[in-house]
Design a binder for these strands. Sequence first.
DNA 1: TCGTCGATCTACT
DNA 2: GTAGATCGACGAG
Length: 200
Amino acid sequence: MKLTETYYHSDDVVALSRDLIGKYLFTCIDSITTGGYIVETEAYNGIIDKASHAFGNRQTPRTRTMFMQGGVAYVYLCYGIHEMFNIVTSGEGQPHAILIRAIQPTQGIDAMLYRRKMSTLKPNLTSGPGSVAKALGISRSINAFSLQGDTIWIEDRGLDFNDDQVAAVPRVGVSYAAEDALLPYRFYVKGNPYVSKPNK
DNA sequence: TCGTCGATCTACT
DNA sequence: GTAGATCGACGAG
């Protein structure tokens, strides 16, 4: 059920982003397992993508994780407040990454509510990349962790969405990326309440 | 060493 | 609808 190492080695990060819709993401943090299935992703297409931190083959202590062999987690802090979870793909030296923007929770909902300091289940529990990381207990301490380990991993449980149910649209929050911001690198399940707000 | 600003979310008017 | 939170990474000097 757990996705294999080779699954992440594909060079086609956009196709992988599409394929990850409907896959199950789990974390086991503080011996609590939480997770759900992915309903929204965004692809970051390596050094030619202006929206990527690694654009122009920029290698720094932070982006080094993205240059690793596919199949590890890339976690980083944004706006000084929010941590975001990405999946690194492709081979070593190819900084491809997929941002998980939203999941539909299926396991450990109580723990997620507690982490988000919410009392009732609302769609915004895991809607948006910052919220997903928070709810799953993801922090920078698991940066570069392998997705084959027991802390964070992805499973295929046979859930599948056909092309009519999945939309491909331009990305959000990357307007500084000029023409690359227009590329249809964002995928989501149409009508799913956990998909983050803009163009629902 | 310093100044700028971000792959966002929430609260408040 | 809009502003504020809040800090580390990055690039310029």
